[in-house]
Computed example of a mutant assay.
Amino acid sequence: MAAGIALADRDGIESISMRKLAQELGVEAMSIYTHVRNKDDLLDGMVDAVIGQIPTTADGAGGADGADGADSAADADWATTLRQMALAARAVILTHPWAPPVIESRTAPGPATLRHIDAVLSVLRKGGFTVAQTHHALHILGSRLLGFTQDLFDDSAGSSGALDPETAAGIVSELGATLPYIAEMALAVTHQGALGGCDDDAEFQFALDFILDGLAGLQNR
Protein backbone atom coordinates (compact mmCIF):
# COMPACT_ATOMS: atom_id res chain seq x y z
CA MET A 1 0.00 0.00 0.00
CA ALA A 2 2.85 2.37 0.85
CA ALA A 3 4.44 1.74 -2.56
CA GLY A 4 1.11 2.33 -4.29
CA ILE A 5 0.59 5.60 -2.41
CA ALA A 6 4.11 6.76 -3.25
CA LEU A 7 3.56 5.92 -6.93
CA ALA A 8 0.24 7.78 -7.03
CA ASP A 9 1.76 10.78 -5.22
CA ARG A 10 4.59 10.92 -7.74
CA ASP A 11 2.90 10.02 -11.05
CA GLY A 12 -0.85 10.40 -10.41
CA ILE A 13 -3.56 7.82 -9.79
CA GLU A 14 -3.68 6.94 -13.50
CA SER A 15 -0.22 5.42 -13.07
CA ILE A 16 -1.52 2.71 -10.76
CA SER A 17 -1.51 -0.78 -12.23
CA MET A 18 -0.41 -4.16 -10.95
CA ARG A 19 2.47 -4.16 -13.44
CA LYS A 20 3.79 -0.72 -12.47
CA LEU A 21 3.39 -1.43 -8.76
CA ALA A 22 5.33 -4.67 -9.18
CA GLN A 23 8.10 -2.73 -10.92
CA GLU A 24 8.21 -0.29 -8.01
CA LEU A 25 8.57 -3.20 -5.59
CA GLY A 26 11.02 -5.14 -7.76
CA VAL A 27 8.81 -8.23 -7.97
CA GLU A 28 6.76 -10.10 -10.57
CA ALA A 29 3.29 -8.66 -11.22
CA MET A 30 1.54 -11.92 -10.29
CA SER A 31 3.03 -11.80 -6.81
CA ILE A 32 0.97 -8.66 -6.09
CA TYR A 33 -2.15 -10.83 -6.23
CA THR A 34 -0.90 -12.63 -3.13
CA HIS A 35 -1.82 -9.48 -1.21
CA VAL A 36 -4.75 -7.90 -3.12
CA ARG A 37 -7.49 -9.48 -5.25
CA ASN A 38 -7.51 -6.82 -7.98
CA LYS A 39 -6.92 -3.12 -8.66
CA ASP A 40 -10.08 -2.09 -6.80
CA ASP A 41 -8.88 -3.99 -3.75
CA LEU A 42 -5.55 -2.18 -4.07
CA LEU A 43 -7.27 1.22 -4.27
CA ASP A 44 -9.43 0.34 -1.26
CA GLY A 45 -6.29 -0.37 0.74
CA MET A 46 -4.48 2.73 -0.50
CA VAL A 47 -7.22 5.19 0.46
CA ASP A 48 -7.75 3.48 3.80
CA ALA A 49 -4.02 3.78 4.47
CA VAL A 50 -4.18 7.49 3.63
CA ILE A 51 -7.14 7.99 5.96
CA GLY A 52 -5.18 6.07 8.59
CA GLN A 53 -2.62 8.90 8.48
CA ILE A 54 -5.24 11.35 9.79
CA PRO A 55 -4.80 11.91 13.53
CA THR A 56 -7.89 11.55 15.69
CA THR A 57 -8.48 13.32 19.00
CA ALA A 58 -6.87 10.37 20.75
CA ASP A 59 -3.69 10.91 18.71
CA GLY A 60 -3.72 14.68 19.12
CA ALA A 61 -5.29 16.25 16.06
CA GLY A 62 -3.76 19.64 15.44
CA GLY A 63 -5.28 22.20 13.10
CA ALA A 64 -3.66 22.90 9.75
CA ASP A 65 -3.49 26.54 10.78
CA GLY A 66 -1.20 25.79 13.70
CA ALA A 67 -3.79 25.01 16.39
CA ASP A 68 -2.47 22.93 19.24
CA GLY A 69 -3.46 19.27 19.35
CA ALA A 70 -6.00 17.87 21.78
CA ASP A 71 -5.11 14.71 23.70
CA SER A 72 -8.76 13.79 24.18
CA ALA A 73 -12.23 15.11 23.52
CA ALA A 74 -12.27 16.45 27.07
CA ASP A 75 -9.38 18.81 26.33
CA ALA A 76 -11.43 21.03 24.04
CA ASP A 77 -15.08 21.74 23.29
CA TRP A 78 -16.63 19.59 20.59
CA ALA A 79 -16.55 22.30 17.90
CA THR A 80 -12.86 23.07 18.45
CA THR A 81 -12.04 19.38 18.45
CA LEU A 82 -13.96 18.69 15.24
CA ARG A 83 -12.37 21.71 13.60
CA GLN A 84 -8.90 20.44 14.52
CA MET A 85 -9.77 16.97 13.21
CA ALA A 86 -11.09 18.30 9.88
CA LEU A 87 -8.07 20.57 9.36
CA ALA A 88 -5.70 17.75 10.29
CA ALA A 89 -7.48 15.59 7.72
CA ARG A 90 -7.08 18.33 5.14
CA ALA A 91 -3.36 18.57 5.82
CA VAL A 92 -3.08 14.85 5.05
CA ILE A 93 -5.28 14.96 1.95
CA LEU A 94 -3.33 17.88 0.48
CA THR A 95 -0.24 15.64 0.39
CA HIS A 96 -2.21 13.04 -1.62
CA PRO A 97 -4.19 15.07 -4.21
CA TRP A 98 -5.29 11.90 -6.04
CA ALA A 99 -7.14 10.58 -2.98
CA PRO A 100 -10.49 12.50 -2.92
CA PRO A 101 -11.93 11.14 -6.19
CA VAL A 102 -10.78 7.64 -5.26
CA ILE A 103 -12.35 7.92 -1.80
CA GLU A 104 -15.61 9.05 -3.41
CA SER A 105 -15.58 6.04 -5.74
CA ARG A 106 -15.23 3.45 -2.96
CA THR A 107 -18.31 1.41 -2.06
CA ALA A 108 -17.40 0.42 1.49
CA PRO A 109 -15.26 2.07 4.19
CA GLY A 110 -12.12 0.32 5.37
CA PRO A 111 -11.00 -0.22 9.00
CA ALA A 112 -9.10 3.10 9.27
CA THR A 113 -12.05 4.99 7.79
CA LEU A 114 -14.42 3.38 10.28
CA ARG A 115 -12.10 4.25 13.17
CA HIS A 116 -11.96 7.86 11.98
CA ILE A 117 -15.75 8.10 11.72
CA ASP A 118 -16.13 6.49 15.15
CA ALA A 119 -13.77 9.11 16.61
CA VAL A 120 -15.93 11.87 15.08
CA LEU A 121 -19.10 10.30 16.48
CA SER A 122 -17.44 10.07 19.88
CA VAL A 123 -16.69 13.80 19.88
CA LEU A 124 -20.30 14.64 19.02
CA ARG A 125 -21.89 12.24 21.49
CA LYS A 126 -19.57 13.32 24.32
CA GLY A 127 -20.29 16.91 23.30
CA GLY A 128 -23.96 16.45 24.16
CA PHE A 129 -25.53 15.65 20.79
CA THR A 130 -28.30 13.07 20.66
CA VAL A 131 -27.92 10.04 18.42
CA ALA A 132 -30.32 11.61 15.90
CA GLN A 133 -28.45 14.94 15.93
CA THR A 134 -25.15 13.11 15.55
CA HIS A 135 -26.54 11.30 12.51
CA HIS A 136 -27.57 14.63 10.98
CA ALA A 137 -24.17 16.13 11.76
CA LEU A 138 -22.35 13.27 10.05
CA HIS A 139 -24.30 13.88 6.84
CA ILE A 140 -23.90 17.66 7.05
CA LEU A 141 -20.14 17.53 7.57
CA GLY A 142 -19.77 14.91 4.85
CA SER A 143 -16.37 14.66 3.20
CA ARG A 144 -15.04 17.61 5.23
CA LEU A 145 -14.37 15.05 7.93
CA LEU A 146 -11.83 13.56 5.51
CA GLY A 147 -10.34 16.91 4.55
CA PHE A 148 -11.95 17.71 1.20
CA THR A 149 -15.18 18.90 -0.36
CA GLN A 150 -16.97 18.23 -3.62
CA ASP A 151 -17.34 21.65 -5.26
CA LEU A 152 -19.69 22.60 -8.08
CA PHE A 153 -16.75 22.57 -10.49
CA ASP A 154 -13.00 22.21 -10.41
CA ASP A 155 -11.21 25.52 -10.93
CA SER A 156 -7.82 24.22 -9.88
CA ALA A 157 -6.47 24.64 -13.41
CA GLY A 158 -7.10 28.36 -13.24
CA SER A 159 -5.31 28.75 -9.94
CA SER A 160 -2.00 27.74 -11.51
CA GLY A 161 -2.07 30.51 -14.06
CA ALA A 162 -4.24 33.53 -13.22
CA LEU A 163 -5.11 35.85 -16.08
CA ASP A 164 -3.58 39.29 -16.25
CA PRO A 165 -5.93 42.19 -15.32
CA GLU A 166 -6.45 43.37 -18.92
CA THR A 167 -7.42 39.92 -20.22
CA ALA A 168 -9.59 39.29 -17.17
CA ALA A 169 -11.42 42.60 -17.68
CA GLY A 170 -12.14 41.65 -21.29
CA ILE A 171 -13.58 38.29 -20.29
CA VAL A 172 -15.74 39.83 -17.59
CA SER A 173 -17.01 42.45 -20.04
CA GLU A 174 -18.09 39.71 -22.46
CA LEU A 175 -19.77 37.74 -19.67
CA GLY A 176 -21.57 40.80 -18.35
CA ALA A 177 -23.83 41.12 -21.38
CA THR A 178 -25.54 37.77 -20.86
CA LEU A 179 -24.37 36.49 -17.46
CA PRO A 180 -24.27 39.59 -15.23
CA TYR A 181 -24.19 37.81 -11.89
CA ILE A 182 -21.40 35.47 -12.91
CA ALA A 183 -19.44 38.51 -14.09
CA GLU A 184 -20.15 40.27 -10.80
CA MET A 185 -18.97 37.26 -8.81
CA ALA A 186 -15.87 36.85 -10.96
CA LEU A 187 -14.84 40.42 -10.23
CA ALA A 188 -15.69 40.18 -6.55
CA VAL A 189 -13.56 37.11 -5.89
CA THR A 190 -10.54 37.88 -8.05
CA HIS A 191 -7.23 36.86 -6.53
CA GLN A 192 -4.20 39.11 -6.65
CA GLY A 193 -5.93 41.42 -9.11
CA ALA A 194 -6.74 38.78 -11.72
CA LEU A 195 -9.23 36.02 -12.38
CA GLY A 196 -8.05 32.69 -11.09
CA GLY A 197 -8.85 29.73 -8.91
CA CYS A 198 -10.44 30.15 -5.49
CA ASP A 199 -8.46 29.89 -2.28
CA ASP A 200 -9.57 26.35 -1.48
CA ASP A 201 -8.11 26.34 2.04
CA ALA A 202 -9.92 29.57 2.97
CA GLU A 203 -13.20 28.32 1.50
CA PHE A 204 -12.83 24.98 3.29
CA GLN A 205 -12.33 26.68 6.64
CA PHE A 206 -15.14 29.19 6.05
CA ALA A 207 -17.63 26.42 5.23
CA LEU A 208 -16.40 24.26 8.10
CA ASP A 209 -16.84 27.06 10.65
CA PHE A 210 -20.26 27.91 9.20
CA ILE A 211 -21.37 24.30 9.58
CA LEU A 212 -20.02 24.03 13.13
CA ASP A 213 -21.90 27.20 14.10
CA GLY A 214 -25.05 25.69 12.64
CA LEU A 215 -24.55 22.45 14.54
CA ALA A 216 -24.21 24.47 17.75
CA GLY A 217 -27.63 25.94 17.00
CA LEU A 218 -29.05 22.45 16.35
CA GLN A 219 -27.71 21.26 19.68
CA ASN A 220 -29.46 24.10 21.51
CA ARG A 221 -32.91 23.48 20.01
Rank of each mutant, 00 (worst) to 15 (best):
I32P: 03
C198Q: 09
T56Q: 06
G214K: 00
F153Q: 00
A216H: 10
Q53W: 09
A49S: 11
R83G: 09
S105Q: 12
G26S: 05
Q150V: 15
P101Q: 02
D48G: 13
A186Q: 05
R90D: 01
V50N: 05
H136V: 01
D209G: 05
G63A: 15
R221H: 04
P109C: 11
A112I: 04
T81M: 14
E184R: 00
K39M: 14
T167C: 03
G176D: 00
A8F: 14
A112T: 03
I211V: 13
R90A: 09
T134S: 15
A58S: 12
P101T: 02
D200G: 12
L43F: 14
M1F: 01
R90H: 06
A58L: 13
P165K: 07
A132I: 13
F148A: 12
V27T: 05
A49I: 04
L25G: 04
M18E: 02
D164K: 05
V47C: 07
I140F: 00
F204V: 03
D11I: 02
R115P: 04
A76S: 07
F153A: 10
N38D: 15
A70H: 02
C198Y: 11
A91M: 09
H139C: 05
T167D: 09
R19T: 13
F129T: 00
L21D: 02
G63M: 08
D59V: 10
V27E: 07
L25F: 08
D9G: 07
L208A: 11
G128D: 11
A70T: 03
L94V: 15
D154Q: 04
K39N: 06
Q133A: 15
G12W: 06
A186M: 14
L195W: 07
A29Y: 11
L152W: 06
D68R: 10
Q219I: 07
D164H: 07
A79D: 15
S15Y: 00
G161T: 08
Y33C: 06
L141Q: 00
A216C: 05
A73S: 09
K126N: 12
T130C: 03
D9T: 15
H35Y: 14
L94E: 14
D9Q: 13
Y181A: 04
G161R: 09
A162C: 05
A79S: 15
E28N: 13
A169Y: 08
D151Q: 12
D71K: 09
A64P: 00
Y181E: 12
I93C: 05
A61N: 12
L43W: 13
A112V: 03
T107R: 06
V131W: 08
I13G: 03
A88M: 04
L87M: 08
F153R: 03
F148R: 04
